[in-house]
Nucleic acid binder design. Structure first.
Lengths: 215, 215
DNA sequence: CCATCTTTGTGCACGCGTTCACAAAGACAT
DNA sequence: ATGTCTTTGTGAACGCGTGCACAAAGATGG
């Protein structure tokens, strides 16, 4: 029986082994003391807990570049997601296959949701159309929405929305990049005039800025 | 002079007003007691701290659906990012304009990076090509990489990588969705036989599972 | 069957971020 | 000027997640 120890897994994942064991213990998973975790059993337990063993039909609304990219994305199928339908407002798109799935018109949105028992919708429309699409999805029975449109969506209680902003990650990189440049400058400063270090409490219109930001 | 109070902002953002004030104080931003924060000044300070006032040339490598979607994404320009070049390995793509920018061939990658002083690269290639592209970007001087390919990239120290997995958000939604279903079932259970509630310590091969997951 | 060795599961302590609560600052009215 | 009222900036308390350290569990060998 192939097994792994929490120590091995932790090293591979770059985390603390105790944290890993504690997390596993929350799942009710059992390892064997002196041996480790049965790999197959562990994978199954985690998959089940994460909902990967279930079939999740999703619809993608808005088949532009992003919608098409999502429809083609390989990572979905392997995680239990099935693209049940592609929906677009453009009549010219209707019937055209994207990623092997024919695009359907927005008019049929409600029917599609209900016929396929869809509870998760993906919005990849322009910002202007997003709220309206969202309302129709919710009215048709969707209770979870993944929003790629750059708008904040209003939904009733009981509906989950997650917003993906493709530029946020880029912004975080730029922030660190800026910091790298700043560090170099500060290091140079110190080399030249260590005693001239600015005070930590130094503030004001032109004040320098301490460390704050997502990791 | 238009102003906002921390209370207003906190309510709008759905966070605690004290946290907001403390965060602002780290930026060295100054509000006026009894009045609030000068909106224009605040916006400028935050923009500057986040690096939004700088011009960040980026290259996008891999102009498939996703690459094209990114090239067209409006959110970039408004956040200080400028798509300096689009690069693809397919010779047939070369010269074709996407989002108004002509696609260039991978052969010229190094030159493009250097000519434009690019320090941030976006990888939207298939998984197989990602590491190779990454190596070339780094060798050419890129120090921050945004990776959309489903692979873990190896980079030397000093280079930042952020990985975006489009299915993770979907997976989180599915997790909560599963939980909603579970809650309903549990509620039904309780209604019928409240005394039969399972013990919190109940574990085992079929054990139930407690609360664990990203929010 | 006992001793030893490995690895789990977890109580406990520490540290960090969030929230509370309030003094100080400034605006504004009288 | 003086007092009142609003809102900031921040010290202190709290809570939660992380990491340490160890007892308990079980495998393995003699």
């Amino acid at each position: 029986m192939p097994t792994v120890s929490s120590e091995e897994l932790a090293a591979a994942a770059g985390v603390n082994s105790a944290k890993l064991r504690k997390d596993f213990s929350y799942l009710g998973s059992y390892g064997t003391r002196g041996v480790g975790y049965d790999v197959e059993y562990l994978v199954y337990q985690i998959s089940r807990e994460l909902g990967l063993t279930q079939d999740w039909p999703v619809v993608i609304v808005g088949i532009g570049n992003l919608g098409a990219a999502l429809a083609n994305y390989g990572g979905f199928a392997s995680r239990g997601f099935r693209v049940a339908a592609l929906i677009d407002a453009d009549p010219a798109m209707a019937g055209k296959p994207v990623a092997g799935i024919p695009v359907q018109h927005t008019d049929d949105l409600e029917r599609i949701i209900q016929d396929n028992g869809v509870s998760i919708g993906v919005i990849a429309t322009p910002a202007g159309a997003a709220q309206q699409v969202c309302d129709r999805l919710v009215a048709a029975g969707v209770t979870s929405i993944l929003n790629f449109a750059p708008t904040v969506l209003n939904v009733p209680d009981g509906v989950d929305v997650r917003k993906v902003d493709l530029s946020i990650e880029l912004q975080i990189l730029a922030f660190h990049e800026q910091r790298k440049a700043g560090e170099e400058a500060a290091a140079a400063d110190t080399a030249v005039a260590p005693a001239a270090r600015r005070q930590p409490a130094d503030k004001g219109p032109d004040g320098d800025v301490p460390a704050v930001m997502p990791a």
